[in-house]
Structure formats: C-alpha cells, structure tokens
Nucleic acid binder design. Structure first.
Lengths: 253, 253
DNA sequence: CGTGTTATTGACCAACATCAAACTTAGTGG
DNA sequence: CCACTAAGTTTGATGTTGGTCAATAACACG
C-alpha cells in the first residue's frame, strides 16, 4: 500500500512541496501521509472554488494547472497566481471564512480535498506542520507582492520573462519541469490576464523573446535558450519564493 | 493601572485592530496587554526594516503611516501596502526569515517592537491569538490580491477612487478617521508608486475626481463628498478586507 | 474533414509616461 | 515676521507602450 515516497502519490506531491519550503520531521511527514484525501478529476475551465463560497475543505492540486482569479466590474479578469501539483490552493480558507476570489482549473486537473478539521488536527499534533502551512500562505503572499511589483512597474517584456523564470523555477523545485524548459499549459489570453496585458500584446512580446533568442516555443513548450539572458531581462531574483537551498539548486543549468 | 481600553495606549491600538478582524477572548486580550513593547519614534522617510534583513522582532505601528515597498532594477519603486496605527507590519517575519521587501515610515511614526519569542509564547498559550495573527497575515494577502487586480485591470481613475475608499474604510474600522473623510498623510508621488502610475498622472486624476464632485482636497485632507459615487467609481467592495460586521459598520455615513 | 479555439499580424488609437516649467506650501533660520 | 529654501503640486506639450478592432492562419479534437 505504500508508494515510493512512503505514501500514496497524492501525499507524496504534497510532501515534496512542503519540503521545498520547510524542514519536516519524520513524524510530521507521517502525519501528512495520514491526511484523508477525497480525490476528484476536474475538466478544464471548471471552477474549484468560487468567490463567495465558504469552503470546509482545502484543495490540493495533484495534477494540472490552476489559476486564482478575480472578476472585476466590466467583466475583466485578473489572474493572481498559477498553481501546480503539490500546491494547496485555499489554505486561507482555514481562517478566512468567505472566499474573496475564485480558483479555476486551466487544464484537466486531479485534485484532492482535505477537510479543514483533519488539517487542524494534524497541525495541533504537529506544530511543525502548522508552521509549514502558515509559511506556505506567507510564500503565496510574497508571490503576490512580486507580481504586483511587476504589473505596476515592469514592461510587458520584463513581465513575461519574469513569469517564465518563476514558473520554471517553481516547477523544478517540486521535481517537475525539464532541464531547459517546461510545458506551458496555459493560453496567451491567460498569460495576459495574469500580467495585466492583452493577448494580442502577449503574442507580440513572445515573438520578440523568440527573436532575441531567449526562448523557443515549439507548440505549448517553453524552451529556455538563454537562462541568464531571460533572468536578467525579467529582473528575476528567486529570493521571494523563499525556497530552501536544496529546492533552489534544482534549477541551476 | 488599567487605561480606558484596559492597557497602555500602544496595546489598546493593537487590540482594537485585532478586534476589527477577529473575536478575542478576555484571556487573549490580557495576553496581548502583557506583550513587551520596545517603543521608538522614527522620523519620516526612515526604513523600519529593509530587504535582506533577518528581523527578530515584529513592528507594531502606534502612530503614523508606513509603506511596504520594493525597489526594482531601474530604481523604480512599487509600494505594496500602506499601514496605519494598530497594524503589525512584519508578522511574516515569524516564518520567513529573510525580508523580501522593505518597510518605510512615510510620516514621523511611533512604533513598538515585539520580540518574536514573546509573540510565539503568547500564541502557544492562547491559540486564539495564533488564529488572529495568522488571519491578519491572510488579510494582508487579500489586500495584495485586490491591489494586484486594480493595478492590472483598473484605470487610473478607478484605482485612485478605490484606494481612497479602502483607506477610509480601514481607518474607520480601527476608530481613526472622521465622519466624511480622513487625513491623507502621503504625497501624490507615493500614491503613484502604490498604484503603478506617475505623480503627474495622479495629479490630473485627482483634479478629475474633484471636478466630478466626488471629493474635495483641502490641504492634505480628503473630504468625501459623495461616498456612493466614489465607491462605484472605484468598484469598491470591502469584502476582501474581511472585517467583522461591527468594524465594517463604522464606515456607514 | 469540419468547427471552435488559439495564435498571429496589421492598422489605428488611447491612456498614461516623459520632460519641463511655474506655482504653492511648509519649514527654517535670521 | 520675513526672506530663503526645499518639497510638493499643478499645468502644458509631446512621446510611447500597450489597447482596440479586425482579419487570417494554424491547431486540436470529435
């Protein structure tokens, strides 16, 4: 019954993620492995949680890409973060009872719901887990701040370069993504909604990034031709991701 | 020994703030009152904490306005939040050891430093305090998200209207601010850095807001002439502040 | 294959930035 | 109390990034 990482693959993803940002005791790992998961498959474009909901479970992403977004008055959408396997996307629901935004599957997704009560019990028994989960919500906030700085003060070219650096780094930190690139499982319109741009402009900037030989984009794949060039174009410094050194090293070429 | 709110005025501000977002037991209130505070007066334009620091205390604002900001590659500044009396501005330092941004006094400020150890001890003894502080960091994150949506998708006019609604609501929620307005203790350049604009453009938009009879700005004061107009111009809905009903009602005209 | 989605490109436009200068306000020191 | 100064506000002229509108091309999937 025990998988290669000492639990079901769903638990393993979560443990890998928590290990990328915090140090877990063996005891805590076992507690995570015992968390009850209610597994579900969601089609693309379906909401996982919606603004106004009062969830009683948290949602762990097992497979696929998820977006956190708000809809504004004139129907515009702002995506505030992308999430990948291992992320628990609504830990905040533990303490903020009403959702002030929505979460949506961008690709077909495997997700696992964990009752708030089970998480609370695990945290009570293992304060290190409490630290890890709180820390995780703080890292999310740090990413919000970095995105805010990008949207407010960086050019479209810098923003897209920065986004690619961030996604690549985050995927590598949890053992996904390849040596020199990653599969970008979102459309240009979704990039636009994340960066405060239009899809037309995203398309033009991507062309420029290709022409500058920073990336190649065969199909849905982003192949990084020149990491240092992309990093400096995007003014990317991964400190704000607060990754542990071990996880960060996964990125180096 | 007990003041009007049952403690020194510095503690009272913090309690008032925590009460605006969470329900505190009398026991927890007493624990907050016993938190050791190291008081300091800071001149305007001085950093309270800087990017790269590894603080061992948290900073409570007792008087004045504070900005959270990042400096980017080309010397541009993005302000990510404003803070007022009662806010603990770097609770995240409890779990993220290295600051990924800075905090700066915009006005002369009274601040109180609280050792991490004292906060941790209080939270261990009173789990409700732990909930309240975690919740506070989650509300901060909710505000980041709202600002991100504004910078990414709202016009300059909407953003400024929204900011004024937010500041007014937050000041009222902790018992500061007047019936129909508040003292705006920041410059137009600082508004610009918060909203991803230039000070020139902020100035022009303020003129438009005045001409539309939404506000008056005698000196540093923002007088709200038409709350409903300002609210709808800024597409402001206070849900994301996650204020308790009692605190929210302080805003109604 | 067809049909809907996504990507790409062009022509034109608007919001906001940049540059520069004048004006107002708030301190500061004599 | 008044000059002097520095900071902040206001305004105009002009430039640029990125938006809008629209059409076509390339995919993806049943």
């Amino acid at each position: 019954m025990e998988g290669p990482a000492g639990g079901a693959p769903e638990h393993a993803r979560l443990i890998r993620k928590l290990r990328s940002i915090a140090d877990l005791s063996p005891d805590a790992v076992r507690a995570v492995e015992r968390l009850p998961l209610r597994l579900r498959e969601l089609p693309a474009d379906s909401d996982i949680v919606s603004e106004g909901d009062q969830p009683t479970e948290c949602c762990l992403i097992v497979e696929g890409w998820v977006a956190r977004y708000k809809l504004l008055a004139r129907g515009q959408r702002q995506i505030m973060s992308f999430h990948i396997a291992g992320d628990i996307v609504d830990l905040q629901g533990l303490h903020l009872k009403v959702m002030d935004h929505s979460l949506c599957a961008l690709t077909p997704c495997g997700v696992a719901f964990i009752p708030h009560a089970a998480l609370e019990e695990a945290m009570r028994r293992h304060p290190v887990l409490q630290t890890a989960f709180w820390r995780d919500t703080l890292v999310d906030a740090a990413v919000f701040r970095e995105w805010m700085a990008g949207i407010g003060r960086r050019t479209a070219y810098q923003r897209i370069a920065h986004l690619f650096c961030e996604q690549f780094t985050r995927l590598r930190a949890v053992g996904l993504g390849d040596e020199n690139g990653f599969e970008l499982r979102i459309t240009q319109a979704e990039i636009a909604d994340a960066l405060g741009l239009t899809s037309v402009h995203v398309n033009r900037v991507l062309k420029a990034l290709r022409q500058d030989r920073l990336i190649e984009t065969p199909g849905r794949y982003v192949n990084i031709l020149n990491w240092e060039g992309l990093r400096s174009a995007g003014d990317f410094d991964p400190s704000y991701l607060h990754l542990r050194a071990a996880a960060l090293n996964e990125r180096s070429p």
